[in-house]
Write a protein that binds this DNA or RNA. Structure first.
Length: 511
RNA sequence: GGGCGCGUAGCUCAAUGGCAGAGCAGUAGCCUUUUAAGCUAUUGGUUACAGGUUCGAGUCCUGUCGCGCUCACCA
């Protein structure tokens, strides 16, 4: 056995012995190339086509895939191999492959091994399109057995026995999860389709896809704690971005009128069902548009994605029906809080009076929170849980929205909206503030809030962003969407980890 | 970070404080149309880790690690 640091389990040692025996018998267990002629689906389709025609030649095929089941019957072996498109049955008979080869298969080939097999397609007595194997070989020997999962077909329904279900193992060893749980592969195909649909929607509307820095000397565009890293040669601390906003809006200054980016954001905060430290965001900025325009685009974009991915806008999330077709419910924030929480924001102009009103309604109150944060708490605790159907909640308090433009004539309110589907916050958008003097004031206000309460997430003042804005920034509407959450919705997955291939987990000593 | 729950064979799961088990997988056989194939025999355990209580701990207690749910946090 080869020298190695790894401690092999007894099951693995058995397979290593098989590996050595294969080599000793002159069979390379890891050949460099395969010679597949058909996928499983293509072979079955070609066979069924030929079957329908009188006197057509037999369909010859070389198939490749992973052994997923075997039924050894003396001089006969049935096995299913699985490839990217499905499964196909192999039929090995000593008459066809010879006693020695059949014996080799029975002794040295295991579940999980990648193999290649050549022969003619035919139909077994029970009617399954199968490959009558004439020759076969190993493509890649599996040393570690896959987590066992056996399928039983009952009335056409595939029932899975002893499938890998432990979430920790599934996420840490996603490769094994994907290998044995085909429905997991489907989730990630759905995810790719979601991203494709979003990109197509924006490309069709003359948006330019761009890439901006992930490593940033200053972070901004959202209220979140950043991850910090360090450039050795430059002796410079750098931050992983928490949003794309400030860079994308610089591009509007430069004359790119419609830009978007799909990429990773990093936020050094809590992890739960809907939050991962790194997540995928879509942001777009559109010159000469305002938040009303962006509301309309939001509805159309999400409906488009559902239509492209699922073929319908009438979907179900965790058993609850959701209709994504426009128009969506639109709710003024102040009116919504009056209606659903019974609190009159106009009568509560400061944090103390609002906190009192909230306590009177039995809501939990953080005594240190400023008015804007309290309003945010009412939204999260009272309004959001009622937003099963798509809802656009608009006109937010200014003090939690330093990058959004005021509602004319209402200095305490900005032209901002968030939208919710299936009670999840999906995205955030506003008419972007483009007045450099007011922007500077807003940044300074945020700095004072931070000085007053060090629990606040500190947002540094980005002088270069202000300089860009002083060159002149066209009025514009901006938009941000949590791509992972939209994928959760469209793939009907209740946990963000189910739509991320490698979600964050604490590290373990054995890894 | 708080609360609650969980961690037993490769996988899925049992085990009143009293001999650590089953199915599948594995191993050795029988078996020329099976499909959770079947039949016979059989291997496999630091019960997450470290302590403690007890005649005796998978089980009770304390701590640690990890996972899940939840609360807090998260414009």
């Amino acid at each position: 056995m080869a020298d190695t640091e790894h401690n092999y389990s007894p099951l693995e040692q058995t397979r290593l012995e098989k590996l050595e025996r294969l080599r000793a018998a002159g069979h390379e267990p890891y050949p460099p190339r395969a010679t597949r002629t058909h996928t499983s689906r293509a072979a079955i389709a070609a066979f069924e086509t030929a079957e329908g025609k009188q006197g057509s030649d037999p369909v010859r095929a070389t198939l490749a895939g992973r052994i997923r089941s075997t039924r050894l019957m003396g001089k006969l072996v049935f096995a299913h191999i699985e490839d990217g498109e499905g499964r196909v049955q192999l039929f090995l008979r000593s008459n066809d492959v010879g006693d020695d080869a059949l014996d080799l298969f029975k002794k040295e080939f295991d579940l999980g091994d990648f193999v290649e097999a050549s022969g003619e397609m035919f139909r077994t007595k029970t009617g399954e399109a199968s490959l009558k194997v004439e020759s076969f070989r190993m493509l890649a020997k599996a040393i570690t057995p896959l987590p066992a999962a056996k399928d039983e077909e009952i009335d056409g329904e595939i029932v899975r026995h002893a499938a890998l279900t432990d979430p920790e193992t599934r996420y840490r060893q996603r490769y094994a999860d994907l290998a044995v749980n085909p429905q997991v592969r489907e989730v990630f195909k759905t995810r790719a389709a979601v991203v494709r649909a979003l990109r197509q929607f924006l490309d069709d509307r003359d948006f330019l896809e761009v890439e901006t820095p992930i490593l940033q000397p200053l972070y901004g565009g959202a209220a979140a704690r950043p991850f910090v890293t360090h450039h050795n040669q430059l002796h410079q601390d750098l931050y992983l971005r928490i949003s794309f906003e400030l860079y994308l809006k610089r591009l509007l200054v430069g004359g790119l009128e419609r830009v978007y980016e799909i990429g990773r954001d990093f936020r050094n905060e809590g992890v739960d069902r809907t939050h991962n430290p790194e997540f995928t965001q879509l942001e777009f900025y559109m010159a000469y548009a305002d938040y009303h325009d962006v509301m309309a685009m939001t509805e159309q974009m999400v409906a488009h994605a559902a239509q492209q991915v699922l073929g319908t806008t009438s979907i179900a999330f965790q058993g609850q029906a959701v209709e994504l077709a426009p128009p969506w419910r639109r709710m003024d924030l102040k009116e919504g809080i009056q209606e659903l929480a019974g609190i009159d924001l106009d009568a509560c102009q400061d944090a103390a009076s609002l906190a009192a009103a909230m306590k009177a309604k039995g809501l939990a109150v953080d005594p240190k929170a400023p008015r804007g944060k309290l309003i945010d708490a009412i939204i999260g605790d009272v309004l959001q849980p009622t937003f099963q159907q798509p809802t656009i909640l608009f006109n937010y308090p200014r003090d939690i929205s330093p990058l959004a433009k005021n509602v004319p004539g209402d200095p305490a309110t900005v032209e901002r909206f968030e939208f919710f589907i299936a009670t999840m916050e999906m995205g955030n958008a506003f008419t972007e503030l483009n007045d450099p003097l007011e922007q500077e004031q807003r940044f300074l206000e945020m700095g004072r809030a931070y000085d007053a309460d060090k629990d606040e997430d500190f947002q540094p003042l980005d002088e270069d962003y202000l300089r860009a804005m002083r060159y002149g920034m066209p009025p514009n509407g901006g938009f941000g969407l949590g791509v992972d959450r939209l994928t959760m919705l469209l793939a009907d997955q209740p946990n963000i980890r189910e739509v991320m291939l490698f979600p964050h987990l604490r590290s373990r000593e054995d890894e």
